[in-house]
């Protein structure tokens, strides 16, 4: 698949050099740290010890935006994670004792070899990249988030899906003990999400293990989640335990909750309003003025072709 660099970012949005240099220093630091660990030997960080706040060894990616990332404090305190709480400031506190190790991801359905991965071995399946993506929440706010992960296609290629694999379905952990929100009927638990096969194979679709160069904080979907930057945030399912390859359009949590408000595709689209509010503008966290929302969240050059000939008003 041809990977184009995003071209729709005005030069006014390009990160100031000082910030950029800081980030470079940070990245160099992270790489050096990783290299130091590697030379020190694997005993130092055995796979089972990987937990929150572990530095990850990463490389840069041409798929990153050059926009300034949202401060880590905001990314880790302003969360929609209904399994913990419907209050945005709830997950940071309530996820403190969430157990992300041991953690397995069961892969099943229309693939050659059904498998259960330990999350640490899943993380090592491909080299980790820094992917700085825009995130647009369906509620009308947005962030720029420096994720760490690799294209989901790396995993899918290894699994060798059969011709019956038309869609991929993801499922979040079901555990009322650890997820107090699952005791309420606010959504039909466990949370599920889905992508069409070509969407799942798109290089932008990121199997995500980290944030700001470290393993994912619990409130951001640890230990492994999906990030699909051209879709509204709720499509980017968190704390995944199951990946299923199916031949039908998978049921998705928000679509089940309110089918007229949240469609299966849920591509960011300023021209299709939420039935109750406008999607034409967004508030970037940290900014005063609202900015116009971009088609496919600014990733149109890369993903618009996936939806050729589709009526996006109908397939919202």
């Amino acid at each position: 698949m041809l990977i184009k660099k995003p071209s729709d970012i005005p030069s006014s949005e390009i990160t100031p050099k000082s910030v950029y240099m800081d980030r470079r220093r940070f990245m160099t630091g992270a790489t050096l740290f990783g290299a130091a660990l590697a030379t020190a030997g694997c005993e130092m960080v055995s796979p089972s010890k990987v937990s929150a706040n572990t530095k990850l060894t990463t490389t840069k990616s041409p798929l990153s935006t050059s926009e300034t990332p949202t401060p880590e404090k905001d990314i880790t305190n302003y969360n929609n994670f209904y399994e913990f709480s419907t209050d945005k400031y709830g997950p940071a506190e309530l996820s403190r004792n969430f157990r992300t190790s041991p953690w397995t991801v069961k892969v099943s359905g229309a693939i050659k070899e059904k498998k259960t991965y330990d999350v640490d071995s899943l993380m090592k399946l491909a080299s980790l990249e820094d992917r700085i993506y825009r995130l647009r929440c369906v509620e009308g706010w947005s962030m720029v988030i420096p994720w760490v992960g690799y294209s989901l296609s790396n995993l899918i290629n290894q699994l060798q899906p059969t011709s019956k694999a038309k869609y991929v379905m993801f499922t979040t952990l079901m555990d009322m003990g650890q997820f107090p929100g699952q005791r309420s009927g606010v959504l039909d638990w466990p949370y599920t999400e889905g992508l069409r096969m070509d969407e799942a194979m798109h290089p932008l679709t990121l199997l995500t293990f980290g944030l700001y160069g470290e393993t994912l904080p619990n409130q951001d979907g640890a230990p492994v989640r999906i990030v699909i930057p051209w879709k509204y945030g709720f499509k980017s399912i968190k704390s995944i335990v199951k990946i299923d390859f199916v031949d039908y359009e998978p049921p998705t949590a928000w679509n089940k909750a309110a089918p007229n408000e949240y469609g299966f595709y849920s591509n960011v689209n300023p021209n299709v309003d939420h039935p109750r509010w406008s999607q034409a503008t967004e508030r970037r966290i940290g900014e005063f003025r609202k900015r116009p929302t971009l088609m496919f969240n600014g990733y149109g050059d890369q993903v618009a072709s996936l939806y050729n000939g589709m009526d996006l008003k109908k397939h919202y």
């Binding site: 404090k73 905001d74 305190n77 302003y78 945005k88 400031y89 508030r283 966290i285 005063f288």
Partner: peptide, 8 residues
């Protein structure tokens, strides 16, 4: 102290 989205 108004959090990530003070205006909201």
């Amino acid at each position: 102290e108004l959090g990530a989205n003070p205006l909201s």
